[in-house]
């Protein structure tokens, strides 16, 4: 397995990292360098290793737990807010219940 410039562009898109073309060759080289060290794992026999999750259980909390407080207003940290809404650039298509094709699906 070897990382290609196309892979780096694809992964950068998935991660919403804006990369310049000039950054790509070095990243290809570094990722291949790092992943080369991971190849050792392919030789490990993991057939006997249980895939079931560790014997832990998620704790459950009562429904009535009070809301965690914000000791600072949303306006204090939000980059752009109007009438209580967080603002983003206008989204081009949308469905009535938030399902949108701009960037992904709701739920």
């Amino acid at each position: 397995m070897s990382v290609t410039p196309e892979d780096v562009r694809h992964v950068a898109t998935l991660a919403r990292l804006g990369l310049s073309e000039g950054q790509i060759p070095a990243l290809v080289q570094q990722l291949n360098g790092i992943l080369g060290h991971m190849d050792v794992l392919q030789q490990v026999d993991v057939s006997g290793v249980p895939l079931t999750p560790p014997d832990q259980a998620a704790p459950l909390r009562p429904d009535a737990r009070p809301a965690d407080v914000l000791l600072r207003s949303r306006e204090a940290f939000a980059p752009a807010m109007r009438d209580g809404f967080f603002l983003v650039p206008r989204l081009t298509t949308h469905g009535a219940q938030g399902a949108s094709a701009d960037e992904g699906d709701a739920a």
Binding site: F85, L87, V88, R90
Partner: peptide, 15 residues
């Protein structure tokens, strides 16, 4: 998920 509101403001979408 939350709601994206598109008809609230003309210039931007609201979350």
């Amino acid at each position: 998920a939350g709601k994206s509101v598109h008809d609230r403001f003309r210039d931007v979408s609201a979350i």
